[in-house]
Protein backbone atom coordinates (compact mmCIF):
# COMPACT_ATOMS: atom_id res chain seq x y z
CA UNK A 1 0.00 0.00 0.00
CA UNK A 2 1.62 3.19 -1.07
CA UNK A 3 1.10 6.28 1.04
CA UNK A 4 -0.03 8.15 -2.01
CA UNK A 5 -3.04 5.91 -2.56
CA UNK A 6 -4.01 6.09 1.10
CA UNK A 7 -3.78 9.86 0.81
CA UNK A 8 -6.20 9.86 -2.11
CA UNK A 9 -8.64 7.57 -0.30
CA UNK A 10 -8.62 9.82 2.76
CA UNK A 11 -9.01 12.96 0.68
CA UNK A 12 -11.92 11.35 -1.14
CA UNK A 13 -13.52 10.60 2.24
CA UNK A 14 -13.46 14.22 3.39
CA UNK A 15 -14.60 15.62 0.05
CA UNK A 16 -17.42 13.08 -0.19
CA UNK A 17 -18.66 13.85 3.31
CA UNK A 18 -18.43 17.59 2.75
CA UNK A 19 -20.17 17.32 -0.63
CA UNK A 20 -23.00 15.41 1.00
CA UNK A 21 -23.42 17.77 3.91
CA UNK A 22 -21.37 20.93 3.36
CA UNK A 23 -21.17 21.83 7.03
CA UNK A 24 -17.67 23.28 6.99
CA UNK A 25 -18.35 25.35 3.90
CA UNK A 26 -21.79 26.51 5.04
CA UNK A 27 -20.61 27.45 8.53
CA UNK A 28 -17.46 29.29 7.57
CA UNK A 29 -18.77 30.95 4.38
CA UNK A 30 -21.91 32.31 6.02
CA UNK A 31 -20.04 33.41 9.12
CA UNK A 32 -17.33 34.98 6.96
CA UNK A 33 -19.77 36.97 4.86
CA UNK A 34 -21.45 38.15 8.02
CA UNK A 35 -18.08 39.25 9.38
CA UNK A 36 -17.35 41.25 6.21
CA UNK A 37 -20.71 42.93 6.53
CA UNK A 38 -20.23 43.76 10.21
CA UNK A 39 -16.74 45.08 9.51
CA UNK A 40 -18.27 47.39 6.92
CA UNK A 41 -20.59 48.76 9.60
CA UNK A 42 -17.76 49.03 12.12
CA UNK A 43 -15.78 51.11 9.63
CA UNK A 44 -18.77 53.41 9.19
CA UNK A 45 -19.45 52.27 5.62
CA UNK A 46 -16.20 53.87 4.46
CA UNK A 47 -16.14 54.25 0.68
CA UNK A 48 -12.44 53.85 0.11
CA UNK A 49 -10.25 52.06 2.55
CA UNK A 50 -6.47 52.02 1.97
CA UNK A 51 -5.32 48.81 0.30
CA UNK A 52 -3.41 47.68 3.42
CA UNK A 53 -6.43 48.03 5.65
CA UNK A 54 -8.91 46.40 3.35
CA UNK A 55 -6.66 43.37 2.75
CA UNK A 56 -6.14 43.04 6.49
CA UNK A 57 -9.90 42.95 6.93
CA UNK A 58 -10.27 40.20 4.31
CA UNK A 59 -7.72 37.94 5.97
CA UNK A 60 -8.94 38.58 9.48
CA UNK A 61 -12.36 37.38 8.30
CA UNK A 62 -10.98 34.33 6.51
CA UNK A 63 -8.86 33.31 9.50
CA UNK A 64 -11.65 33.73 11.96
CA UNK A 65 -14.24 32.01 9.76
CA UNK A 66 -11.90 29.06 9.27
CA UNK A 67 -11.71 28.44 13.03
CA UNK A 68 -15.49 28.16 13.07
CA UNK A 69 -15.51 25.26 10.62
CA UNK A 70 -12.29 23.48 11.39
CA UNK A 71 -13.69 21.07 13.98
CA UNK A 72 -16.47 19.77 11.74
CA UNK A 73 -14.43 16.91 10.36
CA UNK A 74 -12.93 15.99 13.72
CA UNK A 75 -16.46 15.71 14.92
CA UNK A 76 -17.29 13.35 12.06
CA UNK A 77 -14.19 11.32 12.95
CA UNK A 78 -15.32 10.97 16.55
CA UNK A 79 -19.07 10.54 16.00
CA UNK A 80 -19.00 6.84 15.03
CA UNK A 81 -15.30 6.29 15.61
CA UNK A 82 -14.37 6.48 11.93
CA UNK A 83 -11.20 8.39 12.80
CA UNK A 84 -9.96 5.50 14.92
CA UNK A 85 -10.78 3.11 12.12
CA UNK A 86 -8.44 5.11 9.92
CA UNK A 87 -5.73 5.07 12.60
CA UNK A 88 -5.87 1.27 12.54
CA UNK A 89 -5.18 1.12 8.82
CA UNK A 90 -1.68 0.18 7.64
CA UNK A 91 -0.96 3.76 6.70
CA UNK A 92 1.74 6.06 7.96
CA UNK A 93 -0.15 8.40 10.27
CA UNK A 94 1.38 11.53 8.80
CA UNK A 95 -0.63 10.69 5.66
CA UNK A 96 -3.78 11.17 7.71
CA UNK A 97 -2.57 14.63 8.60
CA UNK A 98 -1.65 15.55 5.02
CA UNK A 99 -4.98 14.35 3.62
CA UNK A 100 -6.90 16.34 6.21
CA UNK A 101 -4.68 19.35 5.55
CA UNK A 102 -5.42 19.31 1.82
CA UNK A 103 -9.15 18.79 2.27
CA UNK A 104 -9.42 21.54 4.90
CA UNK A 105 -7.43 23.86 2.62
CA UNK A 106 -9.83 23.13 -0.23
CA UNK A 107 -12.81 23.98 1.95
CA UNK A 108 -11.12 27.14 3.25
CA UNK A 109 -10.35 28.17 -0.33
CA UNK A 110 -13.96 27.59 -1.37
CA UNK A 111 -15.41 29.59 1.51
CA UNK A 112 -12.63 32.16 1.10
CA UNK A 113 -13.75 32.75 -2.48
CA UNK A 114 -17.27 33.48 -1.26
CA UNK A 115 -15.90 35.85 1.38
CA UNK A 116 -13.69 37.56 -1.19
CA UNK A 117 -16.73 38.10 -3.42
CA UNK A 118 -18.67 39.62 -0.54
CA UNK A 119 -15.65 41.70 0.32
CA UNK A 120 -15.43 43.12 -3.23
CA UNK A 121 -19.12 43.91 -3.17
CA UNK A 122 -19.41 45.43 0.29
CA UNK A 123 -16.07 47.04 1.07
CA UNK A 124 -15.29 48.23 -2.43
CA UNK A 125 -11.53 47.61 -2.59
CA UNK A 126 -9.70 48.61 -5.77
CA UNK A 127 -9.71 45.83 -8.39
CA UNK A 128 -6.46 43.86 -8.12
CA UNK A 129 -3.77 45.36 -10.32
CA UNK A 130 -2.08 41.96 -10.25
CA UNK A 131 -4.82 39.31 -10.38
CA UNK A 132 -2.28 36.47 -10.55
CA UNK A 133 -0.65 37.53 -7.30
CA UNK A 134 -4.05 38.02 -5.72
CA UNK A 135 -4.99 34.46 -6.65
CA UNK A 136 -1.64 33.21 -5.34
CA UNK A 137 -2.23 34.97 -2.03
CA UNK A 138 -5.66 33.39 -1.70
CA UNK A 139 -4.41 29.92 -2.62
CA UNK A 140 -1.25 29.96 -0.53
CA UNK A 141 -3.12 31.57 2.36
CA UNK A 142 -5.73 28.81 2.29
CA UNK A 143 -3.01 26.15 2.13
CA UNK A 144 -0.98 27.59 5.02
CA UNK A 145 -4.05 28.28 7.12
CA UNK A 146 -5.37 24.78 6.37
CA UNK A 147 -2.12 23.31 7.66
CA UNK A 148 -1.90 25.20 10.93
CA UNK A 149 -5.65 24.89 11.53
CA UNK A 150 -5.55 21.11 11.01
CA UNK A 151 -2.67 20.81 13.43
CA UNK A 152 -4.24 23.01 16.10
CA UNK A 153 -7.58 21.23 15.69
CA UNK A 154 -5.84 17.91 16.34
CA UNK A 155 -4.27 19.35 19.51
CA UNK A 156 -7.50 20.76 20.87
CA UNK A 157 -9.78 17.90 19.76
CA UNK A 158 -9.73 16.40 23.25
CA UNK A 159 -9.85 19.55 25.35
CA UNK A 160 -12.86 20.85 27.20
CA UNK A 161 -12.63 24.31 25.67
CA UNK A 162 -11.85 23.53 22.07
CA UNK A 163 -13.99 26.22 20.48
CA UNK A 164 -12.20 28.95 22.44
CA UNK A 165 -8.80 27.36 22.45
CA UNK A 166 -8.57 26.83 18.70
CA UNK A 167 -8.39 30.52 17.68
CA UNK A 168 -6.35 31.27 20.80
CA UNK A 169 -3.61 28.86 19.73
CA UNK A 170 -4.04 29.38 16.02
CA UNK A 171 -3.57 33.12 15.74
CA UNK A 172 -0.20 33.43 17.52
CA UNK A 173 1.16 30.40 15.64
CA UNK A 174 -0.11 31.77 12.33
CA UNK A 175 1.21 35.35 12.67
CA UNK A 176 3.99 34.93 10.06
CA UNK A 177 1.47 33.57 7.57
CA UNK A 178 -1.05 36.25 8.43
CA UNK A 179 1.39 39.11 7.90
CA UNK A 180 2.61 37.51 4.68
CA UNK A 181 -0.76 37.05 3.01
CA UNK A 182 -2.02 40.47 4.12
CA UNK A 183 1.05 42.16 2.62
CA UNK A 184 0.79 40.11 -0.57
CA UNK A 185 -2.88 40.95 -0.98
CA UNK A 186 -2.20 44.63 -0.36
CA UNK A 187 0.55 44.52 -2.95
CA UNK A 188 -1.72 42.79 -5.47
CA UNK A 189 -4.24 45.59 -5.04
CA UNK A 190 -1.73 48.45 -4.98
CA UNK A 191 1.65 47.58 -6.56
CA UNK A 192 3.32 50.72 -5.20
CA UNK A 193 3.45 49.09 -1.77
CA UNK A 194 6.51 47.12 -2.86
CA UNK A 195 8.57 44.10 -1.80
CA UNK A 196 6.36 41.15 -2.73
CA UNK A 197 9.27 38.69 -2.93
CA UNK A 198 9.99 38.74 0.76
CA UNK A 199 6.39 37.84 1.46
CA UNK A 200 6.22 35.11 -1.15
CA UNK A 201 9.26 33.59 0.56
CA UNK A 202 7.68 34.09 3.98
CA UNK A 203 4.41 32.37 3.03
CA UNK A 204 6.11 29.50 1.19
CA UNK A 205 8.53 29.03 4.09
CA UNK A 206 5.63 28.83 6.49
CA UNK A 207 3.93 26.19 4.34
CA UNK A 208 7.21 24.25 4.19
CA UNK A 209 7.45 24.33 8.00
CA UNK A 210 3.90 22.99 8.17
CA UNK A 211 5.00 20.14 5.89
CA UNK A 212 7.85 19.05 8.11
CA UNK A 213 7.03 19.70 11.73
CA UNK A 214 3.62 18.01 12.12
CA UNK A 215 5.12 14.99 10.41
CA UNK A 216 7.47 14.74 13.38
CA UNK A 217 4.91 15.06 16.17
CA UNK A 218 1.53 14.09 14.69
CA UNK A 219 1.84 10.43 15.58
CA UNK A 220 2.05 11.30 19.27
CA UNK A 221 -0.86 13.67 19.07
CA UNK A 222 -3.10 11.01 17.57
CA UNK A 223 -2.34 8.26 20.06
CA UNK A 224 -4.35 7.95 23.23
Amino acid sequence: MTGWRAFLHLLWRDVRIEARRPQFFAASASFGVLLVFVTGIALDAAEHLPAEWVSGVLWLDIFYAATVGVHRHDFKDQEWGGGEGVLLAPVDRSMIFYARWVSVSLFIAASGLVMAAAWFLLLNPPPPAQPGLFAFALGAGALGLGGVATFVAALTAHTRLRDVLTPLLLFPLAIPLFIGVVRLTAYALEPTLGHPRVWVADVLGYIAAMLVVPWLVYEWVMEG
Partner: peptide, 17 residues
Protein backbone atom coordinates in the same frame (compact mmCIF):
# COMPACT_ATOMS: atom_id res chain seq x y z
CA UNK B 1 -1.21 -3.33 11.22
CA UNK B 2 -2.12 -4.69 7.78
CA UNK B 3 -2.65 -8.11 9.38
CA UNK B 4 -4.89 -7.01 12.24
CA UNK B 5 -8.65 -6.53 12.15
CA UNK B 6 -10.37 -4.71 14.98
CA UNK B 7 -13.95 -4.27 16.22
CA UNK B 8 -14.30 -1.90 19.17
CA UNK B 9 -17.38 -0.60 20.95
CA UNK B 10 -17.84 2.11 18.35
CA UNK B 11 -18.44 0.85 14.79
CA UNK B 12 -15.49 2.92 13.49
CA UNK B 13 -17.21 4.05 10.32
CA UNK B 14 -18.46 7.39 9.00
CA UNK B 15 -22.12 8.28 9.50
CA UNK B 16 -22.21 10.49 6.42
CA UNK B 17 -20.97 7.79 4.07
Amino acid sequence: RRHIGVVLQQPMVYGDL
